[in-house]
Design a protein around this nucleic acid. Structure first.
Lengths: 346, 346
DNA sequence: TTGTATGCGTTATCAT
DNA sequence: ATGATAACGCATACAA
């Protein structure tokens, strides 16, 4: 026979958190009823509901997550899975912003965010965790995550991707930034300010965003009937950008404008230009992409394309929640607009 | 009436995850035994343990977190609580790195990371969550979080702070970067290269790190018998740094070196110098702090002080885990060394 | 509308 | 060393 302590309603147990049971006792109803009002069931008479709410308030009751999860088969948690090298690629660039965006969406929900840095091993801890019912869904900032890994996880859980992957067959839910039109706008800006020999420094061509930005550059050129200048890979790094700029300058081409697919690369490119005494933007105009910190820290403040990373985070979370709550019509793809920020480099 | 599928042991239930029960059946033992081997209890005979392990493997069993948590009163989760404006202050600076560090420590543990952006309201969702047993402990990157908030949370949970707060009475567990000696080294570098009239552009003086860096600057000066130059608040922003630099130049002081308490501010300062045709470092040498992206994107690559943010994350997590596992001797404070990175600005 | 009873998957306390 | 069995705190089907 269990040794029950006196469950006197007045005694606020030392450290034990109050349970449904206690609230029920205090309100003079059954556990089920308390559960109902806590979960916002409609079928409970106003006076009773009120009494329960009071008891909840007085006792400072807060539902036990584990118990709730166990009984309901829902964790009310979602995972944010980021590739192993967040800090290398997303670098210190967007991560904080995306997270902030996700959080603002989650704020008014009951979901909490679980952070996972994932290696690309579909059999690792990450997969076990995601598969083990620990989370109801996942947000993944993909960009170049392995195919096998992605497929695995989408089979297990509702997933929303941030940034379309390079493998288009994977028709999952995704929110992305409109890289194409962003690049297009940037390039058009170059054209409108008079540039006619426009090169581009691109990102690694196995990344979707690089491809899209290249495409946008090309479109703007085509639309204006301007001949395409050289295309050089800058690897999305500052050093790569500098190297690419040198390559362009040393080539047989003459250019008067460059669309650079990231601010970091643009920053490297501008430094090379300055070193060689080439005036920016007068001799060569530069437009970057990202509107990252680098855009302002560069010798010549960069004209660039701002990406709404915060919005992206918000919408990723929003989409997933709508998926989880069984909403009927969740669009499979959401493309967020970019914005040209005109500063001094073009 | 629920439509149960045949729970035959051999049939890998469509979607239901295998439970202890199933594993037990398969291995021909009791649930308790399975639980023991899963949790690494010693008191189980090798052959039986082996059989269980096989069953676990074959069924792909993974313990249900909710159930485990409910029964054990431990969530195996820790929270990372960041101030509301992560993205403004930590900005895109350190957040990703700290997270990466935390994650590497957590990787080999059973803990998962819960991310919470906290407003400073001790009664809000964050507090309810932290108090509700949803996590076993918390990591907080504090720097300027409200006192009341902090006190609240430290009373509820084991907490490790990243960065000492400005309120020293709060003697919680904390890991911090050695701002004092970092600033000292930076300033000494200035002195060693011949500077004799050394100013400093400081951060907001209500932040502990600002205070510490100021202190380091002063110490180096004192140690070398060099008179202290002007001290100007640069607000930890690029614009603030630029304004501060102008203020120094326009003052009655002449300076030949400036220790700037952040790269972002240093970046602004350098631009002002360049605009006015003042040679860096020949006429005025600049040393920054952080070794952030801004350090490289600046016109003159910055000599600066690198902070081991990744290590900081690692040690925060490590400290908390040791606290949670009841380790006897956990130091209350851990100060990580910084490192001077010499580039071109000084 | 409200209460009763059962189950969720583990851990932990007992016996054995 | 191993196996029953009782919590753990909540949701929910069902009865009232």
């Amino acid at each position: 026979m269990p040794v029950d302590e006196d469950p006197s309603v007045t005694a606020p147990g030392r450290h034990m958190a109050p349970t449904l049971e206690l609230v029920a006792a205090r309100a003079g109803v059954s556990r089920a009823t308390v559960s109902r009002v806590v979960n916002g069931s409609t079928s409970v008479s106003p006076p009773i509901a009120e009494a329960v709410r009071r008891a909840v308030e007085e006792l400072g009751y807060v539902p036990n997550r584990a118990a709730r999860s166990l009984a309901s088969h829902q964790s009310q948690a979602i995972a944010l899975v980021a590739p192993e090298d967040v800090t290398r690629f997303f670098g210190d660039l967007f991560f904080a912003d995306i997270v902030a965006g996700i959080d603002t969406r989650l704020e008014n929900s009951d979901y909490v965010l679980n952070l996972m840095i994932a290696n690309n091993d579909p059999s690792g801890k990450t997969m076990r965790y995601l598969g083990g019912g620990a989370v109801d869904g996942a947000l993944v900032v993909s960009h170049h995550t392995s195919d096998r890994f992605l497929r695995c996880i989408t089979e297990t859980l509702p997933v929303v991707f941030g940034g379309r992957s390079a493998v288009p067959e994977l028709d999952a839910y995704v929110v992305d930034v409109d890289n194409v039109s962003g690049a297009e706008i940037a390039t058009r800006h170059l054209i409108e300010r008079g540039c006619r020999r426009i090169a581009t420094i691109a990102g690694p061509l196995n990344m979707r965003s690089s491809l899209d930005r290249l495409e946008g550059w090309r479109r703007a050129l085509d639309a204006a009937g301007v001949e395409a200048g050289p295309v050089v890979d800058g690897d999305f790094t500052m050093l790569g950008g500098a190297a690419a700029m040198r390559e362009i300058l040393d080539s047989r081409h003459t250019v008067d404008g460059v669309f650079v697919a990231s601010d970091l690369m643009a920053s490297g490119a501008v430094q090379v230009l300055l070193e060689r005494g080439i005036a920016v933007p007068d001799e060569i105009a530069i437009v970057g992409f990202d509107d990252s910190a680098a855009a302002l820290a560069t010798g010549v403040p960069l004209t660039t394309v701002r990406q709404p990373m915060r919005d992206m985070g918000w919408h990723m979370a929003d989409m997933l929640i709508r998926l989880l709550t069984g909403e009927a019509t969740v669009p499979r793809e959401l493309i967020l607009p970019t914005e040209l920020v005109v500063r001094e480099s073009a």
